[in-house]
Each structure stands twice: as structure tokens, then as C-alpha cells.
Write a protein that binds this DNA or RNA. Structure first.
Lengths: 219, 219
DNA sequence: AGGCACTATTGAAACGGAGTCAATAGCGAC
DNA sequence: GTCGCTATTGACTCCGTTTCAATAGTGCCT
């Protein structure tokens, strides 16, 4: 009913040498701005729950308008997922750099060391990643599932059984289950550490090989 | 500015023998209504994600007004959590009825049978429970954590080590980790079963005892 | 220097869903 | 009947996400 009206514009205010400090309009290029927002998102969503982080808050903290935020990320959820992806990639990236040519046990231990080091560095981010800030969102689930799969492959390659047993349902269920074991125990450890980092690493290692002892044909 | 105005009331429509079918106002007593809403909530939140279920939808499906829904559950989240609690209790209840006086291994197997039977009966509910529909909500986390703790105690009592090792951090971490293992493998199994129910049960059992072999002092 | 084009940025308003509340309808008791 | 109690309604408020035309900075061309 009401026709489109020309928008009113705010009255001009003295922009230079005015006594009342006018918010300077900072221009960044696309990449910098995007990086800034991602980093802010990762921090905010790690500290507070998804619903408790409002776009207004984020825009205010970034000292930009809501509109600009939406220019970079079309949706709050997109922003969240983008942040989560970064956290996930950092985690996986941290352990994909394990030296080759070690004995299987040593490779697993080294991988777990890298993993736990990284987790220790950013425990909040890890917990919020793995708890899946938005339950049952397919994209979020995909990110987490991706982490598990990549970890699975990492640790699988540390053992000499990979080529023989790839595709064996019992074997794969057991090793993927071990990933679940590690994940859950690590979250609990972040919240309330009852073992040292080394004890936890050794426990994980011993249990992986115990599990392999169960599912690998002749031990 | 605008003062409180007396509410307009909808025009009276012929309530009896009218041709236009008037929605009958069904009166239920508190318990029935509450049960109906809980059951609807469990179904809806199992099918769709939390954010994709709107109060309006639920009210429409229940053939009541939003206001009434809010009369029973003061908050959408409360409704969700109440449904989750029921699902959790059903799950735990299903396996707390394992016959006593069996050998440890048999008790564990029986417990897992009951567990997997129940999961098979309501896989959607199980998955949505364990994936934690609302991430990082403290109440939701508490429900899930409660399930894990009760399962932990169940299965712990199935072994003869409980009294000796209660409080031992390495032991408890390992057994709780096994719960994580079972949980994650079960979710995957619900989504894409690659083993039979019996194979999965046996795998879980064997791995529990392998894990115990690692953390119990002399095997 | 002044206009031009191009892109980052803004602000206000639309939109949508959660949550509120005074008013109303059904139902049993007297 | 009509009184009183309780279940129920629906319009309204509120608040956070999302949209989009308008605007301001920046460098370039002349």
C-alpha cells in the first residue's frame, strides 16, 4: 500500500576537526576484512553459544555495520560454518605433518602428540568444534565428519594394515570407533584433565593397538 | 502513545449445524495434553533440526494455539529438553533391566543387546539425542552427559573391576572412552549399517575387554 | 582540479519466529 | 440456570536476522 519512498539521509555532521569524535569509516580490502571477520567469528563462537552471539554484537566488535557483515557472509550460519571450517583445517593440518619412516607405534604417538599439542593450544575452539555448535545442521555435521575421516586416514596410514584391511567393515568400524574414543576422551580431558598429556597419549596409543589386536586376523 | 484498546473479538459464527466447519475446541486434561505435546515434540525434533521446527508448526500439528503450547512449556527450548529427557530415559531404562548373576562377559553382551535393540527401534530419536540438537546448550549437554554416566555405571558393574579401580583416572578414562566409541560407532551404524547387530555387539564386547586388558593392572 | 567509475560501507526498514497476556469457552457443581 | 474453575485462544509485542537503495572513499583519466 505504502509506496516506496525516497530514503531520508542522515544530516551531515562536521567530519573534520569536529569536537565530537566521528567514527572514522575504515576501508579494508576484501581479503583483510574477510580475515578479520573470520577471526572474530572463531573467537566469539568459541566463547559463547551460537544463539548467544548476535550479528549486532559481531558488527559492533568489528566496528562495522551489520550490512557489511552480510556483504561478506550472506548468513549468520555461513559465517559460523566458515569459522568452523578454519578451526577444523587447523586441527587436521597440525597432525598431517608427522615424519614418515618411523615405526608404526612411533608414528601414532607422534601424531597424537601433534594432535594434543594443538588441542592444548586452542582448547575452547576444539571443544566447540567437536560439540558441534549447531546440532544436526548438515553442513556442520559434514565438517566434523570430515575431520574424523581425515584423522582416520592419518592414523590408518600409521599402521601396516591399511592396504590389507581397507574396506573391511569390522576393521574400519573399530578404527573409526577409536577416533570417537579419542575425541570424547579429549573433550573430557579439556574440561577436566585427570591425566598428563603424555599419559593420555600413551593410553590412546595402547588402546589403538589393543583394538587392532582384536580386529586384525592373527594379531 | 496509543492507549490500550479493548480487544476486538472475532465475530460470532454459527457454532452448531453451520455449514462452515468450525474447529471444535478440544479440551484435554493437563496430563493428556502434556503427553501429547511431548510425544509430538520428540517426533518433530527427531525428524528436523531444532531451528527448522517452529512453534507455529507444532501448534498447528497439535491442533492447538501457540498460547496453549506456551502454557505447558514456557519455552521452545524447555519443550525440546523435556522431549530429549524422555528419549534419554527410555534409552537408559532399556538396558538397566539386565539379569544379574551372569558372567561379566555375558552381562556386557546382554546389556549391549538391550541397547542395540532399543536403538534399532527408534534410530532417529537416538541419533538426534546423541548428536545433541542444540550444541553447547548446558541443559542438553547435561542430558547427554547423564546418559553416558549411567551407561558407564551400567557396564562398569558388569565387570569385576569396579570396586578395585573406581576413581582410577586411567581406568575411568578408558571405560568412558569406550562409551564414546560405542556411541559414535552406533550412530554410524544407524546411518549406514555395515555389520549385523550381532557382529556389532560382539565387536563392542571384545573391544571393551581388550581395553580392560590394557588398563587393568595385571590383565 | 574536477569529474568518473568502481567498490566498500552504511542505515533504515522488512521479515519472521519466539514469547506475552487479556479475553473467552467449555464443564462440573450447586 | 449461573457460578467458578481451568483449558484455551489469537492478536500483539519484541528482538534478531536479513535486505537493499543510497552513500562515501579512492584512485584514475583528462
Amino acid at each position: 500500500m505504502i509506496l516506496q519512498m525516497p530514503r531520508r539521509r542522515a544530516v551531515k555532521r562536521a567530519t573534520r576537526a569536529g569536537r565530537t569524535a566521528v567514527k572514522p569509516r575504515v576501508r579494508l580490502d576484501t581479503d583483510e576484512r574477510r580475515a578479520q571477520l573470520l577471526s572474530l567469528a572463531k573467537a566469539s563462537f568459541s566463547m559463547r553459544a551460537y544463539d548467544d552471539v548476535s550479528i549486532d554484537d559481531l558488527a559492533r566488535e568489528a566496528r562495522i555495520s551489520k550490512g557489511l557483515l552480510y556483504h561478506y557472509f550472506p548468513t549468520k550460519r555461513d559465517l559460523y560454518v566458515a569459522g568452523l571450517r578454519e578451526i577444523a583445517d587447523e586441527l587436521v593440518g597440525a597432525i598431517t605433518s608427522v615424519p614418515e619412516h618411523l615405526a608404526p607405534i612411533e608414528r601414532v604417538r607422534a601424531g597424537l602428540d601433534a594432535y594434543l599439542d594443538h588441542v592444548t593450544r586452542v582448547p575452547q575452539a576444539f571443544v566447540s568444534l567437536m560439540r558441534g555448535g549447531i546440532g544436526s545442521d548438515p553442513e556442520v555435521a559434514a565438517v566434523i565428519e570430515g575431520v574424523r575421516t581425515r584423522l582416520f586416514e592419518q592414523f590408518l596410514h600409521g599402521t601396516p594394515f591399511a592396504p590389507v584391511l581397507a574396506g573391511n567393515a569390522r576393521f574400519e568400524t573399530a578404527v573409526r570407533g577409536w577416533i570417537g574414543f579419542v575425541e570424547y576422551a579429549t573433550i573430557e580431558w579439556c574440561v577436566k584433565p585427570r591425566l598428563s598429556r603424555e599419559e593420555l597419549r600413551d593410553l590412546f596409543t595402547e588402546i589403538l593397538f589393543a583394538i587392532l589386536g582384536v580386529v586384525v586376523p592373527k594379531g
